[in-house]
Design a protein around this nucleic acid. Structure first.
Length: 417
RNA sequence: CGGACUGUAGUAUAACGGUAGUAUACACCCUUGGGGUGGGUGCGACCCGGGUUCAACUCCCGGCAGUCCGACCA
């Protein structure tokens, strides 16, 4: 990709009132555009990052036998009424019916979660213990009428969510799968480069058992968690019980954190509401037991920016960076020579399958280098008159100050690793 | 939902009860060429409604919108 062709541009200044780091850098770098409070467009650069996050999530979901599907956002009132959730205050509602605007039962709520829809679908396909267990997931846009959107991508009114739902014949089978999902989530966050706590939290109305949240310790977070470095114990502040941390002499610490995922044992709340039953081996009718498991990919993206940045901009982890390498052309007094060398390297990188952003723009040195820091691609390569004189190019990782001079062959080899 | 603050070019900001200034971005010209080079020309703005006033972007009221703090949050 040539940078001169990019749809977005970086901007120098942003409103000082936009305080959160992720909003600042993502807006300045041209990754996202703010449409209204808590509502963002993912621009091409940002979508590349989000897609990489989603690919990692998909791979780990598929690895635990979950199948991907895609459910609607426009969900008729009758679904929410069956589970008694039409009164939930975060639902965006509409009653617009193109055929008859007077007809009130034509009301919809925009999907803020999908237990109702997925359970209704499952009644078509789950009838026997032989049909269980099953697990399906989607990556979809959720709508929540948050009283207060805040901190850029960390709390939006419209945001991306991976929601997984599992169906089981017994509590034991649900427990087993629940642990499997926790294992998959650990892999996902490890691949995303995030350090996390698996935090116990209250199950609220659904279960007396603890549910689990994946929390990333970060001052930008809205939650407060208590945790022990030694044994890994961690509880959300809302339910924190010091006596739960008995068998370890490690020190309990607390900190602000961002909830990037959660796992829930739903039990039979929804399956009973929708009549999702199965016949067991004895021919007895039983309600299906359900779990739900969420990850917020856009929130994860914001969290990564909160975690990995410096005063100049973002430092994307390798696995989700929009590009592998940023090729910066510093034309100098001999533009044609430098340009020729850059174009040649650009073509070779493309041929070698190395995703490259080529800054071919006719701008000052400072602007180009600052933009490279802001956008945060993990490797920066400079070709200039100076480097050409040595018949080499300059390589600098975004996360270090060390600069090395390498040949074209060496560079391609290094980047292919 | 409560509190505080704020709405002026694409973006960021300034001043003023009487012609709205600057930076940046953008277009063109010159200059410069390893950390936002310097200069010139051009384009471009007062959230909406009402009130006060000879006159309102400015003061007052209402609305809408935004940011932050808090409450809320499967």
């Amino acid at each position: 990709m040539k940078q001169s062709q990019l749809f977005s541009k970086t901007s120098k200044k942003l409103s000082e009132s936009e305080a959160s780091k992720n909003a600042q850098f993502l807006l300045k770098g041209g990754f996202i555009d703010k449409s209204s409070a808590g509502v963002y467009s993912l621009l091409p650069l940002g979508l590349k990052v989000l897609n990489k996050i989603n690919t990692i999530i998909r791979e780990e979901m598929n690895a635990i036998g979950a199948e991907e599907l895609f459910m609607p956002s426009l969900i008729q009132k009758k679904y929410w009424e069956k589970s008694n959730r039409w009164a939930v205050d975060v639902i965006y509602k509409t009653s617009t019916n193109p055929a008859d605007s007077e007809k009130k039962d034509f009301e919809y709520g925009l999907g803020w979660t999908h237990e109702e829809v997925v359970t209704a679908i499952a009644t078509r396909f789950i009838n026997s213990y032989k049909d269980l267990p099953k697990a399906v997931y989607q990556i979809q846009t959720k709508f929540r009428a948050e009283a207060r959107a805040q901190a850029g991508l960390l709390r939006g009114r419209e945001f991306s969510m991976k929601d997984l739902y599992s169906f089981h014949e017994s509590k034991e089978d649900l427990d087993k799968y629940y642990e499997k999902v926790i294992g998959a989530y650990k892999k996902i966050f490890k691949r995303l480069g995030l350090k996390f706590l698996v935090t116990e939290a209250s199950g609220g109305a659904f279960t007396k058992e603890y549910t689990h949240e994946f929390q990333v310790l970060n001052p930008a977070g809205e939650d407060t968690v208590f945790y022990c470095q030694k044994c890994g114990f961690s509880q959300n502040q809302e339910i924190y019980k010091p006596e739960a941390h008995k068998d370890c002499d490690g020190q309990i610490e607390s900190g602000r954190s961002i909830e990037v995922a959660n796992v829930f044992k739903l039990g039979t709340k929804f399956t009973e509401a929708f009549g999702l039953n199965f016949l067991n081996e004895k021919g007895e009718k039983k309600p299906v037991i359900m779990g739900s498991y969420g990850i917020g990919p856009t929130r994860v993206m914001g969290t990564i920016v909160e975690e990995f940045s410096d005063e100049y901009g973002i430092i994307w982890p390798e696995n989700i960076a929009p590009f592998k390498v940023h090729l910066v052309e510093l034309k100098g007094k001999n533009p044609s020579k430098v340009q020729k060398a850059c174009k040649s390297l650009y073509e070779k990188l493309n041929k070698a399958g190395i995703d490259v952003l080529y800054d071919d723009r006719d701008l000052s040195v400072g602007e180009k280098l600052n933009d490279a820091d802001l956008i945060g691609i993990p490797n920066r390569v400079i070709i200039s008159e100076k480097t050409l004189a040595q018949k080499k190019m300059e390589l600098k990782p975004r996360n270090s100050k060390k600069v090395s001079m390498v040949s074209e062959k060496q560079l391609i080899k290094l980047l292919q690793k």
